[in-house]
Design a protein around this nucleic acid. Structure first.
Length: 229
DNA sequence: AGATCGATGCTCT
DNA sequence: GAGCATCGATCTG
């Protein structure tokens, strides 16, 4: 991260939005519009799929074994990005949640590109591909989300301050939210009873159908555990 | 449609 | 040196 990226301060209302338990924020961030503006132009996605990670209790979290140079951003203030590099190829974007010092975040797994479709497509197609890419597939998968934004490690720690990056929460929570086990997680963190921490919107082409989760009831008498089928 | 596997490099032990 | 919060092409049934 660079000093220039840290000069901005997110709006207090947005800080409040993210300064809560990560499992509280997860269903509410679905439908939010995340955007990045660069010299190349502006790309915005409506977030349709996220996964929660909690470094205090969650063996799958990069922060589970404590603070390191890589995961430092997750220990930082909310309403900032945690960006990392994985599998030698892909970058992934997380939205840091909770108060400073609490290493929790939401991995942005998929979204609908609502602005800058051509720019997002050109970034995705920088490498030639065999089959044509439908719009709905532009930001399907965390590596693809990062690619649409041309995000790399230089964006780790960047604030959602409305300068380069911005996020607008939805006016109201979605009526059709699903949840289930996280994708690509191995070991204890893959336990579907303890860590059904993947959340996505129902009926979204930007989310693979075969990965559909259970219906989440946001009613006041419900809990995530009790709605597991 | 599902399983398998190669690409490719950073991070931590 | 092992493992990895992935993607997408290529197998197989």
């Amino acid at each position: 991260m660079t000093d220039a990226l840290l000069t901005g301060t997110p709006d207090p209302a947005l800080v409040d939005f993210f300064d809560r338990p990560v499992l509280d924020v997860a269903p509410l961030v679905l439908g939010a519009v995340l955007s990045r503006s660069t010299d190349a132009g502006r790309v915005a996605i409506r977030i349709t799929e996220v996964e929660a990670y909690d470094g205090r209790t969650d063996p799958a979290s990069h922060a589970y074994r404590g603070r390191t140079a890589r995961n430092a951003s997750m220990f930082g203030p909310p309403a900032h990005l945690y960006c990392y590099f994985i599998y030698g190829i892909h970058h992934s974007l997380n939205l840091v949640c909770g108060p400073t010092g609490t290493p929790t975040g939401l991995l942005v797994r998929a979204g609908e590109v609502v602005e800058g479709v051509e720019l997002a497509r050109s970034r995705r197609e920088a490498k030639p591909r065999k089959h044509p890419l439908p719009d709905a597939g532009l930001a399907r998968g965390p590596g693809c989300v990062a690619s649409c934004f041309d995000a790399d490690l230089s964006q780790d720690g960047a604030p959602l301050d409305g300068r380069e990056w911005s996020l607008t929460p939805p006016a109201a929570p979605s009526a059709d939210i699903r949840f289930g086990p996280r994708i690509g997680v191995r070991g204890e963190g893959a336990d579907p009873q303890r860590f059904a921490w993947r959340f996505h919107l129902g009926g979204e082409p930007s989310v693979s159908a075969r990965k559909a989760g259970n219906r989440l009831d946001l009613g006041e008498n419900s809990s995530i555990d009790s709605t597991l089928t």
